[in-house]
Nucleic acid binder design. Structure first.
Lengths: 144, 144
DNA sequence: GCTTGCCTTGAAGTGTACATGAAGGTTTAA
DNA sequence: TTAAACCTTCATGTACACTTCAAGGCAAGC
């Protein structure tokens, strides 16, 4: 498939795919006789892997380092493993921070009582929860 | 406290704190008679809130929009709520992507067998798992 | 044969989120 | 009283991750 189809399939722009190839985040892509990129499923998987890791907050630089190690299939499994574990730890921390932020926003959302929407039942529920939590969580009296 | 102490307390650079104030991510900070910023705990909480949301991937722009709504304490709770919910959705998707990436890496890690480290027991375990999963998960035969 | 639509490379431009530097003011310590 | 160590504003610089532009090649349809 050509680069445009690959772009549509992955949601990554053609320019970004070229950029990823240039930065060695994906392997060198095969070319047709006239020099156009001919992208197969292996490349598509790699692009998706890159997208996933990028979404997870991994920098291009770190990703390239990781992929370099992975592609050079020598006896560096120990190094790979260490790198993987290191990256995992970073990502898990990130996930936990994200969850904390989500909890924070959810808490705020649940303690919003919107006069236009809240049913009496919801209001009672919110007040009850608030009474339960006021001593432990109202260290942020300004809402932040 | 002065800006340097606030910076040390929050882990946010002095320049970034000034930038946040300029961009209205935090309220206008009180000044000492000579014009230096005098930062109190309310500002510290705001800085921490910004840090948390930034770490969660919220842009300065969105954060400012949200805080503007929040600070203008009029009857915009519906709008605030909508904005919060929008942001929550973004963050939950991000968390899920991150979890998917974590799962991906964990899978790879569990299927690494490092000749230098793996005990025979671990090796047997890995082979067993591999046999169990080969049909369902080996859609990534190249490791990506 | 010309337009359309894809592709190529390389260079330059863009947006975000700060960081850094210049020029100067204030307070403390020797 | 002079140096150190803070601070101020405003302007400019920087890193990252692309995006856009310029200039041109190839293939199909009219």
């Amino acid at each position: 498939m050509n680069i445009k189809e690959a772009s549509e399939k992955t949601g990554v722009s053609s320019a970004a795919i070229r950029y990823y190839e240039k930065e060695s985040l994906i392997p060198a892509i095969d070319r047709t006789p006239v020099g156009n990129r001919d992208i197969d499923d292996r490349i598509i998987r790699r692009i998706r892997f890159v997208t996933q890791m990028r979404a997870a907050g991994m920098s291009i630089e770190n990703l390239r380092r990781y992929i370099e190690l992975f592609d050079a299939q020598e006896d560096n499994t120990k190094e790979q493993k260490a790198l993987l574990q290191e990256q995992l730890a970073v990502m898990e921390e990130k996930r936990d921070d994200l969850q904390a932020a989500i909890d924070h926003l959810n808490y705020k959302l649940n303690h919003f009582y919107d006069h236009m929407e809240a049913t009496e039942e919801e209001l009672r529920q919110l007040e009850k929860e608030h009474a339960d939590k006021i001593t432990q969580e109202d260290d942020t009296p300004d809402g932040f």
